[in-house]
């Protein structure tokens, strides 16, 4: 009984903070609200008996991915002008159509769910059980996920490289590269 009550509280927290996150003008505020939403999700995970998932949610989702967002926002250094932009861009009237679409979608899913059966008692599924499953039947998925991460890594590196390293034009960079190559060749010859 207690857990059920806790579940509803955590669910409402997650819900409210998500709504707030989507409607803020300031990007950093929206980010913080999102983190709160993720924490609420983590609690829900723990309550249904998936402590490993809860830990992972906080560690990786809130702790790494959101921090990445924080870094980028801070790097862009938008400041007050960002807020003013958002004031101009985000007008209340724009919420009408999307909300209608989302409400309809929600209604459909609710209907579908209402025709299902009730859940039974659930046991806790600990990390050990997850590990055995993961490196047993699902080991292929692990390998593929690692390749995906590699691709993401390379892509992020390439996309971010020019911005991080320098802002010179492509032609200048090419000339410098050619000059370096010539010097290397001459160096070898000598």
């Amino acid at each position: 009984m207690l857990e059920l009550g806790l579940f509803y509280i955590a669910a409402s927290v997650a819900l409210i903070s998500t709504i707030l996150s989507v409607t803020r003008y300031n990007a950093t505020h929206a980010l913080i609200y999102l983190i709160i939403s993720l924490l609420g999700s983590a609690i829900i995970f723990y309550l249904v008996g998936a402590p490993f998932a809860a830990a992972l949610e906080i560690l990786i989702y809130a702790g790494a991915i959101m921090v990445l967002f924080v870094f980028v926002i801070m790097m862009l250094n938008l400041g007050a002008s960002g807020d003013n932009q958002e004031h101009r861009w985000l007008q209340p009237g724009m919420w009408i159509l999307p909300s209608m679409l989302c409400l309809v979608l929600l209604g459909e899913i609710t209907y579908i769910l209402s025709t299902g059966n009730h859940a039974l008692a659930g046991n806790v599924v600990g990390p050990k059980a997850v590990g055995i499953e993961l490196f047993g039947p699902y080991v292929l998925a692990v390998e593929i996920a690692s390749m995906l991460l590699l691709a993401g890594l390379v892509g992020a590196y390439q996309l971010g490289r020019r911005y991080m390293v320098d802002v010179r034009e492509d032609d200048d960079l090419e000339k410098e590269a050619d000059a370096d190559a010539d010097r290397d060749v001459e160096g070898d010859a000598v």
Binding site: L4, I19, V22, L47, I109, A119, L120
Partner: peptide, 27 residues
């Protein structure tokens, strides 16, 4: 045994999903 109905959890997920979808469309 903790009885947290699965449908409620799924409903929560659905609501969060719709909110996110609205955010993508509007912002």
């Amino acid at each position: 045994a903790v009885v947290i109905p699965m449908e409620h959890g799924l409903l929560l997920a659905a609501i969060l999903f719709s909110i996110g979808l609205g955010g993508v469309m509007v912002r």
